[in-house]
Structures are given as C-alpha cells and as structure tokens.
Design a protein around this nucleic acid. Sequence first.
DNA 1: GTGTAATTGCAACATAGTAGCATTTGACGC
DNA 2: GCGTCAAATGCTACTATGTTGCAATTACAC
Lengths: 144, 144
Amino acid sequence: MPDHPHASPAGTLIAAHGGRLTRTRVAVLEVLLAAGQSLTHDEIGVALSRNGIKHDRVTLYRTLDWLVGAGVAHRMIGNDRARRFGVAVSGPHEHPHFHCDRCGKVVCLEGAQPAVAVSLPGGYRLDRTELLLHGVCASCDKGP
Amino acid sequence: MPDHPHASPAGTLIAAHGGRLTRTRVAVLEVLLAAGQSLTHDEIGVALSRNGIKHDRVTLYRTLDWLVGAGVAHRMIGNDRARRFGVAVSGPHEHPHFHCDRCGKVVCLEGAQPAVAVSLPGGYRLDRTELLLHGVCASCDKGP
DNA sequence: GTGTAATTGCAACATAGTAGCATTTGACGC
DNA sequence: GCGTCAAATGCTACTATGTTGCAATTACAC
C-alpha cells in the first residue's frame, strides 16, 4: 500500500471532511474518482478486489454512507433497484442524469438542471427536482 | 364476493387485454383504480386483506407483472428502492411525479412533461425523460 | 509509546423480489 | 351441466440488497 496516503487527491478530500484516513475509504474514493460515473456497491467491491484491497461488504456500505453523509459522494436509485454512488462534483446534486436502459449505467450530465415549471397540488412543498433521461448509451448503441 | 365480475370496470379492463378473470387480478386492479396514486406491493397486499381477499405474496408479484406487461399498470422505483405500481391512465407514462421525502408517497402530476433541452454526450440515444419532484406532500406538511 | 474513540469484520437479521413445481381453476367446447 | 387443459395460484426455497449488534482492530492525539 502507498506510504503517503495524505498526498493523494482522495486522501486530501477525506481529510478535508474531518474523517479518519483508512485503507477502505481512500480506495473507495479513488475508485469513484477514477470511474467518472455512478457505480453500485457490487461494482465498487469488484474494483477494490482488483486493486488488491481486502474489504468487507458491510464496511463498504458504511464507507459509502459516510462519504454520502460527508457530502463527498451522492447516491441515487437505478431501475434495477440498486443504489448507485458517484463523487459529488459540485455541491448540491442539481444536474440531470442519464440512465442507460441497456446496461444500467448512470452518468451525470454536465449541463445545469433546466428550470421547469410544474403546477403542484395545493399544500405540497417542493424541495428539489430530479431530471432523469432514459435511453441507450454510446457503448451499448454500438455493440449489439 | 360479487357474482358478476365482468360488470366491474376492473373486470372489463382485464378482459380487454385477453387475460383470465381471477379473484386476485380483479381485486388488485380495483385497489389500484381506487387508490389514485402509486402503491407498493405491500400496500396493495394490505388493501387486499382489508377487502377480505386471501392472496399469496408471490401471486401478487406475478399479478402486478401481468398488469404491467398488459399495459394496464405501470411501475416505478421509489427512493426506498421499492417498486410502486399504479394504473396506466394515458398510454406512455409521460408526466412528472412527485415524491414525498417524508412519507415516501409518489403521486402522478397531471400536467404534461415540460420539454427540456439537455445536451447529451455524443453517441447517446434518448428514449424518454422522467421528471421527479422531491418535497413534502400536503398531509405530511400539516402534521409533524 | 499509550489511550481512546472511530472503524472494521463477522454473523445474524431484514426486506424486496424470483424460481420451481404441484395443485387449483377460469374459459371453452361439447 | 361436464370434461379438458393451459393459465393462474400457492407453497417452499432461494437470491439480491441492505441493516444491526457487538467484539476486535486501528488511526490519530497526546
């Protein structure tokens, strides 16, 4: 394992949120940073194993919960009812998502959330809106 | 139990889709029609029991699958990662949904989906967009 | 180095949904 | 009405996803 974990971007990010710097946290965050897209617990677990990081299923869940609580990562629910995690790039999570109906991949779209005007029933209070685009991603569209 | 199941709106709807008219199907569809909002399998199960309809958990899943396959009902995933079912009122499911973050209730909003312009990465193909509004519903906002 | 509270790892539990298969039953022809 | 038969049901058992409790370990402050 690297002997200067504080030097990595992941380590810096964790320290900045007052968390203890542990093997699993650094590794998970590095996976998320490298992925550039949302991943399920399972995909993250596989990536950790590939990187030679021994870990427990529960620890992974708790690590991700901590990352979400610290505002470092965000969580969303896919059509397959599995939660997906990604790094929270810019504060509140106010940008559209694209969900590939073929492979289940979820990517964050860069453009800001377009303002939408919807009439809510009386008494309802709106906190935030989430725009989800469904379709087929580039890699799935090429291959069969 | 009623002795003329074909006479009910639920019975007519089922027959129109070439399905067999069974106790569970009629009862489930009646519950959905009466609800006016999306329900989880569990909520539907409770409603069935209240109506004195004996049923099995698996049968309920399969009944709901059939209803979705026949285009009579639609399915969506809530933040609690449970599937919710509702009657498909108007063909494709192209209207916004409101999700109450307090009680988890999901309601279909009547207004049509506003057109949104989002730039998709190259090679991505868009099928449909889903607009999800998060907030607190009227009944949750009143009571603590 | 030592103390201590945050993390981890394990086992058990919980919830949502699916699969296989024997039994029951709705629809249809008679 | 009565028999036939595939569709639908009701079991049991299983998978997948996620959570809880608790004892052992470990990062960090001193």
